[in-house]
């Protein structure tokens, strides 16, 4: 006969599905932010590389702020600032917006390095062969620059995917938050943390392996 009632119910296969769904949300918020952020970041990187001093004095310091302040502070600040200017944002929206700007700040550096990796003589010869500025960008700078910085872009993307765990602080139920909810219910702390960690690892490790293989192959 059971003399004590149990508050906590054990870990069930259903909970694994709950975690998998949450991993899907982590993936979704990451894909959105990395996608938007990369487009923005490439634009900023291009702007930085064409407007030498003007860019360094205007966009660069602003982007620098997002790299120098902890992401968690940025999220809390923005989430509390948005209502002041009359924006009603869900944790998801606020998370996507901040992660996008954060990604853009990181990618702008990568993109700029990529553009600058293509030597001036090569670009001049492209132009003197009759290519327009955009043709030179599309057929010369893009393929060469991409090769030079693609691995570091993957590094940034993986970093953002991992940093998306911080959106849990705003209350968005992504993988880490889901694991916390389950821990509160089941008290199986180690098991659930291990599963959550395994999900993150499974999302990140294959891509980082692929990136390092790629880097090795291209550096030969």
């Amino acid at each position: 006969m059971e003399t004590t009632s149990r508050f906590f119910s054990g870990f069930t296969p259903n909970d694994l599905w709950f975690l998998a769904e949450a991993a899907g949300r982590t993936l979704w918020i990451s894909i959105l932010s990395i996608g938007f952020g990369t487009v923005l970041g490439v634009f900023f990187g291009w702007a930085l590389s064409v407007t030498k001093t003007a860019g360094t004095l205007t966009i660069a310091p602003i982007l620098d702020i997002f790299r120098s302040v902890p992401l968690i502070i940025q999220l809390v600040l923005f989430f509390n600032f948005a209502p002041m200017i009359g924006l009603r944002l869900s944790p998801f929206d606020a998370g996507v917006i901040i992660l996008t700007i954060y990604t853009a700040a990181l990618v702008s550096n990568v993109a700029r390095a990529g553009i600058e990796a293509v030597g001036m003589p090569m670009r001049r010869s492209a132009r003197s062969l009759g290519m327009s500025y955009w043709q030179d960008m599309r057929y010369v700078v893009w393929p060469i620059g991409l090769r030079a910085v693609f691995p570091s872009w993957i590094g940034v993307a993986l970093g953002v995917m991992k940093d998306s765990a911080l959106v849990s602080v705003l209350g968005y139920v992504e993988l880490l938050k889901a694991s916390q909810i389950l821990i509160t219910r089941t008290q199986d702390t180690l098991l659930i943390l291990a599963i959550a960690g395994a999900f993150y690892f499974a999302l990140s490790y294959p891509i980082s392996l692929y990136a390092s293989k790629l880097e090795e192959r291209w550096s030969q």
Binding site: K162, A165, I183, T189, L193, Y200, F201, S208
Partner: peptide
Amino acid sequence: RNTPALFQLFFFGFGLGAV
């Protein structure tokens, strides 16, 4: 390198606390 820093923090905080 492949798990979030926050996860690592939780592991050393709550995970070790549980054992």
